[in-house]
């Protein structure tokens, strides 16, 4: 019986480790390894036009139900928010890779949690490559 008495304490401990001790740690917080995250969030497209890529990203975000927050052609960034009982914020950046390719990196935040699951990013790039009429290549 005594054995069981400890178990609730253990679970309570687990429950609390799910939470943070100091919320200021969030400023520089990452959980997955930097490299793994970058790989999940990045694809290369065989195009050199960053403006065209940005315009297609904006159209794709709209297709997915986002309202655009900001866009900057010179910096190559677009941000948007989707509200659907939750708030999903996405920032997508574009930069040239070599002479023939463009890198697209997306990162998403679901309410107050960074999205680190590969699947939603895969879905985003699937939608984007359809709109680009180009294949999204994985990048090492």
């Amino acid at each position: 019986m005594k054995k069981y008495a400890l178990l609730p304490v253990v679970f309570a401990n687990i429950a609390l480790t799910g939470c943070q001790t100091t919320s200021m740690n969030q400023v520089m917080e990452t959980s997955e390894s930097q490299v793994a995250i970058r790989q999940i969030q990045t694809r290369a497209f065989d195009t050199t036009s960053s403006t065209k890529t940005l315009r297609t990203i904006i159209a794709t975000l709209q297709d997915l139900g986002f309202v655009i927050d900001k866009a900057d052609d010179e910096l190559g960034t677009v941000s948007g928010t989707k509200l659907n009982g939750y708030s999903l914020r996405m920032t997508v950046t574009v930069r040239p890779r070599g002479k023939k390719q463009t890198l697209v990196r997306a990162n998403a935040t679901y309410n107050v949690t960074p999205v680190e699951d590969p699947q939603p990013y895969q879905q985003f790039f699937t939608a984007l490559q359809k709109a680009m009429f180009l294949t999204a290549h994985e990048v090492d």
Binding site: L64, K82, Y86, A108, P120
Partner: peptide
């Protein structure tokens, strides 16, 4: 966690 259909066309 993000809903499965959030980024699905």
């Amino acid at each position: 966690t993000i809903p499965k259909e959030a980024l699905q066309l």
